[in-house]
Design a protein around this nucleic acid. Structure first.
Lengths: 191, 191
DNA sequence: CGTCTATTTGAATGTACTCAAAAGCGGTGG
DNA sequence: CCACCGCTTTTGAGTACATTCAAATAGACG
């Protein structure tokens, strides 16, 4: 299989395109290889792209006024990642995107996405539905943060994302759960 | 102006439709009048509709295992409200939608939305963008909950939603901020 | 083995919580 | 007009949980 075909078969599963369409869409993607520790996007920079993860693990985080890091999202194989708030509005990032396990990505610009949307309404539908799922998982996380104590949130995390847990450090999980590393350590001791 | 025209001019501002299109879209909406205390949707029920608010104020809330209420969203004039997680997936609600100030709504079913989407891709784009904004505000709230102490979250709330604050009780705000009424009272005393 | 990073442990502190009770506010009916 | 009732907010005292800061262990890797 030709390398360019790989993008579409992975990203737009179950969709059928002509050769011309395939060529058009593939021309909008660019491959990137990252090493652990690499930063794809720094807070403050203009956000022009979103990233599809072929393999590896990344996270987005936010640094608050007191200097503390807060992990917003982890992302692994077959997930999309960006600072979406800034991406949608074409503004400067408040999040930093960092590679935490060697990764292989495809990036695509917002402009290219918009071109694809107008050329292929099916893809807009596909992304609207993805967005709806993200919306649902964000809402679930808000409820979880409001309603559950740290220990249960930790248990939820490791059961909901069993594939992510082994790829990330405990202090990443702590910053995702909104607690300190020390508190997470104490929670883990109780289990 | 004929009453039916009102729906479209309010909801789909800046979009132009023919008479037939207007008739088609308007036929999908149904008007509802609610009084303070009325419940539009109960947790556990199938979620088939979303609601556009012409006037009044509603909220969605979640009741956790210990019986505590957690307000997920407030909504006023010109906002949409539903249990979107359940609405998108056509599942049973985990949220309850309650009217907290006499309200006038238009409701529309998911099926009707899908029909409108396929007939008018512009409307799908419009809703995708709305979804993107909701996504952004949810993310903002997650960051805010993780990064800021209760006092700042309260100040953020009253400055971000000055039109909502006078319509809701303090205990609603507390349950939105994730703190108790007593804590909110103490925070307010300090200001 | 030594160094760097990550995790754990301890002790003191602080913030928000629970439970219980008092005060404030708004509307209704006598 | 005022007394009463229900609902909302406030106050107080004791408690629980997570935090901070500092230091000790445990792992990973050259």
């Amino acid at each position: 299989m030709h390398n360019d075909d790989l993008i579409l078969t992975q990203i737009y599963k179950n969709m059928v395109f002509t050769t011309d369409e395939t060529t058009f869409i593939n021309s909008k993607f660019e491959n990137i290889v990252l090493k652990k520790g690499d930063v794809v996007l720094n807070a403050g920079e203009m956000v022009t792209h979103q990233y599809y993860i072929v393999d590896g693990c990344l996270r987005t985080y936010f640094i608050d006024l007191s200097g503390k890091e807060h992990t917003v999202q982890f992302a692994i194989k077959d997930w999309w990642i960006s600072d979406y708030t800034a991406f949608f509005a074409q503004k400067n990032a408040i999040l930093t995107i960092e590679c935490i396990q060697n990764a292989n990505l495809y990036k695509i610009s917002k402009n290219s996405m918009d071109e694809i949307y107008s050329a292929f309404p099916k893809i807009e539908t596909y992304f609207r539905k993805k967005m709806e799922k993200s919306f649902a998982s964000f809402q679930h996380r808000i409820l979880s943060n409001l309603a559950k104590p740290a220990k249960e949130r930790y248990l939820d995390f490791i059961t909901t994302y069993p594939h992510i847990e082994p790829l990330v450090k405990n202090y990443h999980i702590a910053s995702y759960l909104g607690i300190t590393t020390e508190s997470l350590s104490r929670i883990r001791k109780e289990l």
